[in-house]
Computed example of a mutant assay.
Amino acid sequence: MQDARAPAASVTAALHDVAGLGGFFDLRAGGPDDGWHPVARSYATGFTDLAAAVARLHRTTEPRVDVSIAQLGHAARLWSPVLACAVLHGIVLDLEGLQRADDGPALRLPRPAGRYADRLDDGPARALYEQVTGHLSALAEGLRVKVAPRLLDGNSASALAGAAHALLALRPAVRGPLTALTTELLDTGRLAGTGVLTGPDLAFRRVSCCLYYRAPNGSKCGDCGLADRPPRRATRRDTSVR
């Protein structure tokens, strides 16, 4: 069997390239260890620090709202670089060893690693799904606040669709493979049944709600299942504290 592993230098170059897309696509590669900790440590404590930061920022009074918003932001920071590296560089990232900033939600891979998508026997979708969902499942297990599992699944799907929409706007030439991969992912495992793509720009309508509208100055997002009309575009709301 052909070795699917990509050289570390190629993975690092891919991460640097997609980080240039901005925002949620910025997954740090290498660098000094100071200021970072294993993200598993944050999962074990249920992201309590980020949930508290959300509460302060949005003046919320419902812990489940804080947790949902923090989880949604984390899902976006996972899906965006993972999807972009797969579509733009043909590399499926290995998120083992992922770290989180001590002072915020930023993520880092101290030793970038990945595999070539076209050398995977089952294609990239299942591998991408397992990488991201593995992290989100670990986070869900550590939550100190009860949140409906399908709400969290909907957040993951919303983050994926938002990543796809943003990537399409920035790199329209990849519409074909991006649409195909996103569609397959949304029909995989826990993402199946969470919502549907509604247009060629990869707008998405989820069947659940992230609860942001329950914040004092919150609103229903563009893909919200509670909204009255179908979304014209996907919504990327960074509601966590930088």
Results as ranks from 00 to 15, higher is better:
residue 20 G to C: 01
residue 136 L to P: 13
residue 25 F to N: 05
residue 217 N to P: 00
residue 87 V to S: 09
residue 104 G to N: 07
residue 226 L to F: 11
residue 46 G to S: 11
residue 217 N to I: 01
residue 161 A to Y: 01
residue 192 A to L: 11
residue 149 P to F: 00
residue 234 A to D: 10
residue 178 L to T: 08
residue 218 G to D: 04
residue 33 D to W: 01
residue 1 M to L: 09
residue 41 R to K: 10
residue 39 V to M: 11
residue 118 D to R: 14
residue 58 H to F: 04
residue 188 T to N: 05
residue 104 G to Q: 10
residue 22 G to S: 06
residue 169 A to K: 14
residue 223 D to Y: 08
residue 223 D to K: 04
residue 140 A to Y: 07
residue 25 F to W: 08
residue 114 G to L: 06
residue 200 P to Q: 12
residue 68 S to T: 15
residue 175 R to K: 15
residue 95 L to A: 05
residue 116 Y to I: 01
residue 217 N to M: 07
residue 205 R to E: 14
residue 236 R to G: 01
residue 33 D to F: 01
residue 154 G to I: 03
residue 213 Y to T: 00
residue 151 L to P: 12
residue 147 V to T: 08
residue 234 A to T: 12
residue 31 G to V: 06
residue 38 P to F: 04
residue 241 V to M: 01
residue 175 R to F: 03
residue 135 H to M: 09
residue 113 A to I: 13
residue 1 M to P: 14
residue 190 R to A: 15
residue 5 R to L: 10
residue 239 T to F: 02
residue 141 E to G: 01
residue 235 T to Q: 03
residue 227 A to P: 10
residue 99 Q to M: 13
residue 89 H to N: 14
residue 25 F to D: 04
residue 100 R to F: 00
residue 199 G to R: 10
residue 4 A to H: 06
residue 205 R to I: 08
residue 43 Y to C: 14
residue 124 P to S: 04
residue 146 K to P: 00
residue 190 R to M: 02
residue 28 R to I: 00
residue 41 R to Q: 14
residue 198 T to W: 03
residue 201 D to H: 10
residue 226 L to C: 05
residue 30 G to N: 05
residue 68 S to G: 06
residue 137 S to N: 15
residue 58 H to P: 05
residue 131 Q to D: 09
residue 53 A to T: 05
residue 225 G to W: 04
residue 110 P to Y: 00
residue 104 G to V: 07
residue 115 R to T: 09
residue 132 V to K: 08
residue 134 G to M: 13
residue 193 G to A: 02
residue 47 F to D: 13
residue 237 R to H: 15
residue 78 L to V: 09
residue 156 S to F: 03
residue 155 N to Q: 08
residue 197 L to K: 03
residue 61 T to V: 14
residue 31 G to P: 13
residue 166 A to L: 10
residue 126 R to E: 13
residue 59 R to K: 15
residue 226 L to M: 09
residue 76 A to T: 04
residue 45 T to G: 07
residue 135 H to N: 14
residue 40 A to F: 00
residue 24 F to A: 15
residue 151 L to G: 02
residue 110 P to M: 00
